[in-house]
Write a protein that binds this DNA or RNA. Structure first.
Length: 272
DNA sequence: CTTAACGCCTGAAGGC
DNA sequence: TGCCTTCAGGCGTTAA
């Protein structure tokens, strides 16, 4: 389940290989994705890639005519770049392929077909990007702003961290892990956190996101970077997916509850 | 305005 | 062995 660090890993990989390449053909083996990518088959051939950006968990491919592709990996989406001389392995769950003029490929695979790719016209502001809150690594996310976001909601702090309109980029894994490191019970109403707890939570969020980026992200199920390598951060996780196992700090058993239809793992002793 | 629940999807895992 | 059910979860949509 790609979150900010996994998407950042992907984007850095893509930004290193895509700019300057010219699209020759577009293929959509999956009609559902083709429908969502309205006009892509007609508009993309002949365009070249100008850049790749991350917005929260979204990926934006900038094209030379000022238009762009906005993609979201959701749960199981992946982008894999294949150089012109690489062997062409038949890919499972292939949903889209961009063929470049030099014979290199950008493949989009997505087992569960939640992922989306959309073409955005020049000058159009995509609402899904416009409505995103700042991510914890952006300079706009100052401590006062973070505290203000917490203070405006009575929702459980864990659930608030997942609300992309207020804070972008954080998903289930890093929400659980940052709350553990900050020693905060995920069930606490966001507006009940003291200013010291707010400071701790933002510090831990930033630290864990940077650390995960350094390790090329977390591979829980099947995350892969652009060159099809797994991340390594899963070995650093302290509560996520560790229900029943002893807390690495106090030895208490890690508990798992459900909040807003998602699982939350936490240590009932360390997190108060 | 805010908050909560559902549906989309498919493969893995568990029960019997 | 094999069928059936449950689970995983990001986010758009719908409902309250």
């Amino acid at each position: 389940m790609p979150e900010l660090p996994e998407v950042e890993t992907i984007v850095r990989g893509l930004a290193g290989v895509l700019p300057g390449r010219v699209i020759r053909e577009v293929h959509f083996p999956d009609s559902k994705l083709a429908t969502g990518c309205l006009g892509c088959a007609e508009v993309l051939p002949g365009r070249s890639l100008a850049g790749v950006q991350r917005h929260g968990k979204y990926i934006r491919f900038l094209l030379d005519d000022g238009s762009s592709l906005v993609a979201h990996l959701r749960m199981t989406g992946k982008f894999v770049f294949t150089g012109p001389l690489a062997p062409q392995n038949p890919a499972r769950h292939l949903r889209m392929v961009l063929v470049f003029t030099d014979g290199s490929l950008l493949s989009f695979m997505d087992m569960r077909r939640f992922g989306t790719i959309r073409h955005v016209s020049p000058g159009e502001t995509p609402p899904e990007l416009r409505d995103l809150g700042p991510d914890p690594l952006q300079k706009e996310m100052t401590l006062p702003r973070f505290r203000a976001i917490l203070g405006k909601s009575r929702t459980a702090v864990k659930v608030l961290l997942l609300d992309q309109r207020r804070i972008s980029g954080v998903g289930n894994i890093y929400a659980c892990e940052s709350l553990f490191r900050a020693g905060i019970d995920p069930r606490r109403p966001a507006d009940s956190l003291t200013s010291d707890e707010g400071a701790r939570l933002l510090r831990e969020l930033r630290g864990i996101l940077r650390e995960a980026i350094r390790h090329n992200g977390t591979t829980i199920s099947d995350f892969r970077s652009v060159d099809d390598k797994t991340g390594e951060f899963q070995y650093w996780l302290r509560v996520y997916d560790r229900e029943g196992e002893p807390c690495r700090v106090c030895g208490e058993r890690i508990e798992r509850i459900r909040q807003a239809q998602r699982s939350t793992s936490f240590c009932p002793h360390c997190q108060v």
